[in-house]
Protein backbone atom coordinates (compact mmCIF):
# COMPACT_ATOMS: atom_id res chain seq x y z
CA UNK A 1 0.00 0.00 0.00
CA UNK A 2 1.35 3.41 -0.92
CA UNK A 3 2.03 5.93 1.85
CA UNK A 4 -0.26 8.86 2.67
CA UNK A 5 -1.41 11.02 5.54
CA UNK A 6 -5.07 10.73 6.52
CA UNK A 7 -7.65 13.23 7.76
CA UNK A 8 -11.33 12.62 8.40
CA UNK A 9 -13.99 15.27 7.80
CA UNK A 10 -17.33 15.32 9.60
CA UNK A 11 -19.00 18.14 7.68
CA UNK A 12 -18.91 19.55 4.16
CA UNK A 13 -17.18 22.74 5.41
CA UNK A 14 -14.53 20.70 7.14
CA UNK A 15 -14.04 18.52 4.06
CA UNK A 16 -13.47 21.55 1.80
CA UNK A 17 -11.14 23.17 4.34
CA UNK A 18 -9.06 20.01 4.81
CA UNK A 19 -8.76 19.54 1.04
CA UNK A 20 -7.73 23.17 0.52
CA UNK A 21 -5.17 23.05 3.35
CA UNK A 22 -3.66 19.65 2.61
CA UNK A 23 -3.77 19.51 -1.17
CA UNK A 24 -5.13 15.99 -0.66
CA UNK A 25 -7.75 13.98 -2.45
CA UNK A 26 -11.07 12.57 -1.34
CA UNK A 27 -11.62 8.97 -0.29
CA UNK A 28 -15.25 7.91 0.21
CA UNK A 29 -16.27 4.27 -0.29
CA UNK A 30 -12.67 3.39 -1.18
CA UNK A 31 -13.67 0.72 -3.69
CA UNK A 32 -11.57 2.34 -6.45
CA UNK A 33 -9.17 4.59 -4.49
CA UNK A 34 -7.80 1.77 -2.34
CA UNK A 35 -7.40 -0.64 -5.26
CA UNK A 36 -5.23 2.01 -6.93
CA UNK A 37 -3.40 2.86 -3.68
CA UNK A 38 -2.72 -0.85 -3.17
CA UNK A 39 -0.99 -0.85 -6.58
CA UNK A 40 0.85 2.36 -5.63
CA UNK A 41 -0.72 4.41 -8.42
CA UNK A 42 -3.24 6.71 -6.70
CA UNK A 43 -2.02 10.25 -7.38
CA UNK A 44 -2.17 11.68 -3.84
CA UNK A 45 -0.02 11.82 -0.72
CA UNK A 46 -2.90 12.93 1.52
CA UNK A 47 -6.35 11.30 1.70
CA UNK A 48 -9.28 13.15 3.22
CA UNK A 49 -12.10 10.84 4.29
CA UNK A 50 -15.53 12.11 3.22
CA UNK A 51 -17.45 9.01 4.28
CA UNK A 52 -18.90 10.64 7.43
CA UNK A 53 -20.20 13.77 5.73
CA UNK A 54 -23.95 13.16 6.10
CA UNK A 55 -24.83 16.28 4.07
CA UNK A 56 -23.63 14.54 0.90
CA UNK A 57 -25.70 11.36 1.29
CA UNK A 58 -29.25 11.99 0.13
CA UNK A 59 -31.80 11.28 -2.59
CA UNK A 60 -34.44 13.96 -2.91
CA UNK A 61 -36.68 15.97 -5.16
CA UNK A 62 -37.19 19.65 -5.48
CA UNK A 63 -40.11 20.35 -7.82
CA UNK A 64 -39.38 18.43 -11.03
CA UNK A 65 -35.68 18.06 -10.21
CA UNK A 66 -34.27 14.91 -8.64
CA UNK A 67 -31.00 15.31 -6.73
CA UNK A 68 -28.63 12.60 -5.54
CA UNK A 69 -25.80 13.40 -3.12
CA UNK A 70 -22.31 12.25 -4.09
CA UNK A 71 -22.00 9.93 -1.08
CA UNK A 72 -25.14 7.97 -1.99
CA UNK A 73 -24.11 4.33 -2.21
CA UNK A 74 -25.17 1.86 -4.89
CA UNK A 75 -27.18 0.10 -2.16
CA UNK A 76 -28.97 3.39 -1.38
CA UNK A 77 -29.83 3.77 -5.09
CA UNK A 78 -31.22 0.21 -5.19
CA UNK A 79 -33.40 0.88 -2.16
CA UNK A 80 -34.90 4.15 -3.45
CA UNK A 81 -38.55 4.07 -4.61
CA UNK A 82 -38.10 7.59 -6.05
CA UNK A 83 -35.22 6.44 -8.28
CA UNK A 84 -37.02 3.23 -9.29
CA UNK A 85 -39.80 5.49 -10.57
CA UNK A 86 -37.76 8.29 -12.14
CA UNK A 87 -34.45 6.64 -13.10
CA UNK A 88 -34.99 2.90 -13.61
CA UNK A 89 -31.88 2.53 -15.82
CA UNK A 90 -29.72 4.00 -13.04
CA UNK A 91 -31.18 1.49 -10.59
CA UNK A 92 -30.55 -1.37 -13.04
CA UNK A 93 -26.95 -0.18 -13.38
CA UNK A 94 -26.40 0.07 -9.60
CA UNK A 95 -27.62 -3.53 -9.27
CA UNK A 96 -24.82 -4.75 -11.57
CA UNK A 97 -21.94 -3.02 -9.78
CA UNK A 98 -19.57 -5.44 -8.03
CA UNK A 99 -21.23 -7.47 -5.27
CA UNK A 100 -23.13 -6.55 -2.08
CA UNK A 101 -19.82 -5.73 -0.35
CA UNK A 102 -18.98 -3.21 -3.09
CA UNK A 103 -22.48 -1.75 -3.28
CA UNK A 104 -22.58 -1.08 0.46
CA UNK A 105 -19.46 1.13 0.21
CA UNK A 106 -19.09 2.44 -3.35
CA UNK A 107 -20.71 5.80 -4.09
CA UNK A 108 -22.27 7.55 -7.07
CA UNK A 109 -19.83 10.47 -6.69
CA UNK A 110 -16.96 8.00 -6.65
CA UNK A 111 -18.15 6.38 -9.87
CA UNK A 112 -18.02 9.82 -11.53
CA UNK A 113 -14.71 10.87 -9.93
CA UNK A 114 -13.07 7.58 -10.92
CA UNK A 115 -14.06 8.36 -14.53
CA UNK A 116 -13.61 4.82 -15.75
CA UNK A 117 -14.76 4.39 -19.36
CA UNK A 118 -16.67 1.36 -18.01
CA UNK A 119 -18.31 3.11 -15.00
CA UNK A 120 -21.76 1.54 -14.83
CA UNK A 121 -23.80 4.51 -13.58
CA UNK A 122 -22.38 6.89 -16.19
CA UNK A 123 -24.39 5.85 -19.30
CA UNK A 124 -27.69 6.02 -17.34
CA UNK A 125 -26.76 9.49 -16.04
CA UNK A 126 -25.96 10.59 -19.60
CA UNK A 127 -29.41 9.41 -20.76
CA UNK A 128 -30.96 11.50 -17.96
CA UNK A 129 -29.08 14.63 -19.14
CA UNK A 130 -27.68 14.75 -15.61
CA UNK A 131 -25.73 17.75 -14.36
CA UNK A 132 -23.02 17.60 -11.72
CA UNK A 133 -22.63 20.19 -8.97
CA UNK A 134 -18.99 20.77 -8.08
CA UNK A 135 -18.05 22.75 -4.99
CA UNK A 136 -14.87 24.07 -3.48
CA UNK A 137 -14.02 26.64 -0.84
CA UNK A 138 -15.56 29.88 -2.00
CA UNK A 139 -17.24 28.66 -5.17
CA UNK A 140 -19.37 26.18 -7.03
CA UNK A 141 -20.26 25.35 -10.62
CA UNK A 142 -22.76 23.09 -12.33
CA UNK A 143 -21.70 21.18 -15.45
CA UNK A 144 -23.26 18.57 -17.71
CA UNK A 145 -21.81 15.15 -16.83
CA UNK A 146 -20.15 14.85 -20.25
CA UNK A 147 -18.07 17.95 -19.48
CA UNK A 148 -16.92 16.52 -16.15
CA UNK A 149 -15.59 13.34 -17.81
CA UNK A 150 -12.68 14.42 -19.96
CA UNK A 151 -10.76 11.19 -20.58
CA UNK A 152 -10.03 7.72 -19.24
CA UNK A 153 -9.72 8.22 -15.46
CA UNK A 154 -9.65 11.99 -15.95
CA UNK A 155 -12.15 14.55 -14.75
CA UNK A 156 -12.21 18.31 -15.01
CA UNK A 157 -12.18 18.65 -11.19
CA UNK A 158 -9.80 21.31 -9.91
CA UNK A 159 -7.61 20.81 -6.83
CA UNK A 160 -9.76 21.20 -3.72
CA UNK A 161 -12.98 20.74 -5.68
CA UNK A 162 -15.41 17.92 -4.89
CA UNK A 163 -18.48 16.38 -6.48
CA UNK A 164 -21.41 17.55 -4.36
CA UNK A 165 -24.40 15.97 -6.13
CA UNK A 166 -25.98 15.14 -9.45
CA UNK A 167 -29.35 16.40 -10.67
CA UNK A 168 -31.74 15.53 -13.46
CA UNK A 169 -35.29 16.39 -14.41
CA UNK A 170 -38.08 13.93 -13.71
CA UNK A 171 -39.24 12.65 -17.12
CA UNK A 172 -42.32 14.65 -18.14
CA UNK A 173 -43.57 12.10 -20.69
CA UNK A 174 -44.15 8.35 -20.48
CA UNK A 175 -40.62 6.98 -20.84
CA UNK A 176 -39.14 3.53 -21.24
CA UNK A 177 -35.62 3.14 -19.92
CA UNK A 178 -33.16 0.29 -19.62
CA UNK A 179 -29.55 -0.54 -18.79
CA UNK A 180 -27.70 -3.65 -19.90
CA UNK A 181 -24.17 -4.76 -19.22
CA UNK A 182 -22.05 -7.42 -20.84
CA UNK A 183 -19.47 -8.71 -18.38
CA UNK A 184 -17.37 -11.84 -18.18
CA UNK A 185 -19.52 -13.13 -15.33
CA UNK A 186 -22.47 -11.97 -13.24
CA UNK A 187 -20.74 -11.02 -9.99
CA UNK A 188 -17.87 -8.52 -9.64
CA UNK A 189 -17.74 -7.93 -13.40
CA UNK A 190 -16.33 -4.83 -15.04
CA UNK A 191 -18.25 -4.07 -18.23
CA UNK A 192 -16.95 -5.24 -21.58
CA UNK A 193 -19.72 -3.00 -22.93
CA UNK A 194 -22.59 -1.33 -21.09
CA UNK A 195 -25.50 0.63 -22.52
CA UNK A 196 -28.35 2.77 -21.24
CA UNK A 197 -31.30 3.98 -23.26
CA UNK A 198 -34.31 6.17 -22.65
CA UNK A 199 -37.32 6.42 -24.95
CA UNK A 200 -39.78 9.20 -24.11
CA UNK A 201 -43.00 9.13 -26.13
CA UNK A 202 -45.01 12.20 -27.16
CA UNK A 203 -48.82 12.38 -27.13
CA UNK A 204 -48.99 10.80 -30.60
CA UNK A 205 -46.93 7.80 -29.45
CA UNK A 206 -43.81 8.92 -31.31
CA UNK A 207 -40.32 8.90 -29.83
CA UNK A 208 -39.70 12.42 -28.54
CA UNK A 209 -36.03 12.79 -27.65
CA UNK A 210 -34.37 9.39 -27.29
CA UNK A 211 -31.08 8.98 -25.47
CA UNK A 212 -28.60 6.19 -26.14
CA UNK A 213 -25.34 6.08 -24.16
CA UNK A 214 -22.61 3.45 -24.07
CA UNK A 215 -19.63 2.67 -21.86
CA UNK A 216 -16.30 0.86 -22.34
CA UNK A 217 -16.32 1.62 -26.07
CA UNK A 218 -14.57 5.04 -26.10
CA UNK A 219 -12.21 7.05 -23.84
CA UNK A 220 -15.24 8.15 -21.80
CA UNK A 221 -18.83 6.93 -21.71
CA UNK A 222 -20.49 8.47 -24.77
CA UNK A 223 -23.89 9.24 -26.17
CA UNK A 224 -24.68 8.06 -29.68
CA UNK A 225 -26.15 11.07 -31.55
CA UNK A 226 -26.53 8.92 -34.68
CA UNK A 227 -28.67 6.32 -32.91
CA UNK A 228 -30.70 9.06 -31.24
CA UNK A 229 -31.29 10.71 -34.66
CA UNK A 230 -32.56 7.42 -36.14
CA UNK A 231 -35.11 7.18 -33.31
CA UNK A 232 -36.28 10.79 -33.36
CA UNK A 233 -39.95 11.19 -34.28
CA UNK A 234 -40.40 7.52 -35.13
CA UNK A 235 -42.99 5.14 -33.77
CA UNK A 236 -41.81 2.18 -31.70
CA UNK A 237 -41.18 -0.67 -34.09
CA UNK A 238 -38.48 -3.31 -34.22
CA UNK A 239 -37.11 -2.11 -37.55
CA UNK A 240 -36.45 1.39 -36.19
CA UNK A 241 -34.91 0.00 -33.01
CA UNK A 242 -32.62 -2.28 -35.03
CA UNK A 243 -31.48 0.56 -37.33
CA UNK A 244 -30.77 2.73 -34.29
CA UNK A 245 -28.70 -0.04 -32.72
CA UNK A 246 -26.62 -0.40 -35.92
CA UNK A 247 -26.04 3.37 -35.91
CA UNK A 248 -24.07 3.28 -32.62
CA UNK A 249 -21.09 2.04 -34.68
CA UNK A 250 -20.61 5.61 -35.99
CA UNK A 251 -20.19 7.00 -32.48
CA UNK A 252 -17.97 4.47 -30.72
CA UNK A 253 -14.22 3.83 -30.91
CA UNK A 254 -13.52 0.73 -28.82
CA UNK A 255 -10.06 -0.59 -28.05
CA UNK A 256 -8.77 -4.10 -27.43
CA UNK A 257 -7.95 -4.85 -23.78
CA UNK A 258 -7.96 -7.76 -21.33
CA UNK A 259 -11.76 -7.89 -21.26
CA UNK A 260 -12.42 -7.97 -25.00
CA UNK A 261 -11.22 -7.05 -28.47
CA UNK A 262 -12.29 -3.92 -30.33
CA UNK A 263 -14.08 -6.06 -32.91
CA UNK A 264 -15.98 -8.03 -30.26
CA UNK A 265 -16.94 -4.78 -28.53
CA UNK A 266 -18.36 -3.32 -31.78
CA UNK A 267 -20.53 -6.41 -32.31
CA UNK A 268 -21.55 -6.55 -28.66
CA UNK A 269 -22.38 -2.83 -28.56
CA UNK A 270 -24.87 -3.20 -31.44
CA UNK A 271 -26.57 -6.29 -30.02
CA UNK A 272 -26.67 -4.93 -26.45
CA UNK A 273 -28.15 -1.63 -27.69
CA UNK A 274 -30.79 -3.49 -29.71
CA UNK A 275 -31.78 -5.52 -26.64
CA UNK A 276 -31.85 -2.45 -24.39
CA UNK A 277 -34.06 -0.58 -26.86
CA UNK A 278 -36.48 -3.52 -27.12
CA UNK A 279 -36.56 -3.77 -23.31
CA UNK A 280 -37.31 -0.04 -22.98
CA UNK A 281 -40.01 -0.29 -25.68
CA UNK A 282 -41.56 -3.26 -23.87
CA UNK A 283 -41.59 -1.32 -20.60
CA UNK A 284 -43.35 1.61 -22.15
CA UNK A 285 -45.98 -0.66 -23.73
CA UNK A 286 -46.59 -2.36 -20.39
CA UNK A 287 -46.70 1.06 -18.71
CA UNK A 288 -49.33 2.22 -21.19
CA UNK A 289 -51.51 -0.81 -20.40
CA UNK A 290 -51.22 -0.31 -16.64
Amino acid sequence: MQEFDFYAANTLDELLRLLAQSGGRVIAGGTDVLVQAQRGVFPASVLVDASRVRELRFIGQDGETIRIGALTTYADILASPLLRETAPALVMAAATVGAPQTRARGTLGGNIANASPAGDTLPPLLTLDATVRLVKRGGERVLPLAEVLCGPRQTCLEPGEIIHSVAFRRPSQPTGAAFLKLGNRQGMAIAVVNVAVSLPLDDDGRIAGARVALGAVAPTPVRSPRAEAVLYGQSLNDDVLERAAQAVLYDIAPITDVRGSADYRRKAAVRLTARALRLAAQQIREGAQA
Binding site: M1, F6, A8, I27, G29, G30, T31, L34, V35, Q38, L47, D49, S51, A75, G98, A99, P100, Q101, T102, A104, R105, M188
Partner: peptide, 29 residues
Amino acid sequence: GGEGECGACTVILDGEAVNACLVLIGQAD
Protein backbone atom coordinates in the same frame (compact mmCIF):
# COMPACT_ATOMS: atom_id res chain seq x y z
CA GLY B 1 -4.11 -8.92 -2.46
CA GLY B 2 -6.42 -6.16 -1.28
CA GLU B 3 -8.33 -5.47 -4.46
CA GLY B 4 -11.85 -6.23 -3.30
CA GLU B 5 -12.20 -9.10 -5.76
CA CYS B 6 -12.47 -12.22 -3.61
CA GLY B 7 -14.56 -11.47 -0.51
CA ALA B 8 -12.29 -13.52 1.80
CA CYS B 9 -11.90 -10.43 4.01
CA THR B 10 -15.66 -9.86 4.36
CA VAL B 11 -16.63 -8.47 7.79
CA ILE B 12 -19.85 -6.85 8.96
CA LEU B 13 -19.40 -3.09 9.42
CA ASP B 14 -22.34 -1.34 11.09
CA GLY B 15 -24.66 -4.12 9.89
CA GLU B 16 -23.43 -4.36 6.29
CA ALA B 17 -21.11 -6.91 4.69
CA VAL B 18 -18.03 -5.09 3.37
CA ASN B 19 -14.59 -6.02 2.12
CA ALA B 20 -12.24 -5.12 4.99
CA CYS B 21 -9.41 -4.63 2.46
CA LEU B 22 -11.27 -1.64 1.01
CA VAL B 23 -11.86 0.17 4.32
CA LEU B 24 -9.02 2.27 5.73
CA ILE B 25 -8.55 1.81 9.45
CA GLY B 26 -9.22 5.56 9.90
CA GLN B 27 -12.60 5.12 8.21
CA ALA B 28 -13.56 2.50 10.83
CA ASP B 29 -13.08 4.94 13.73
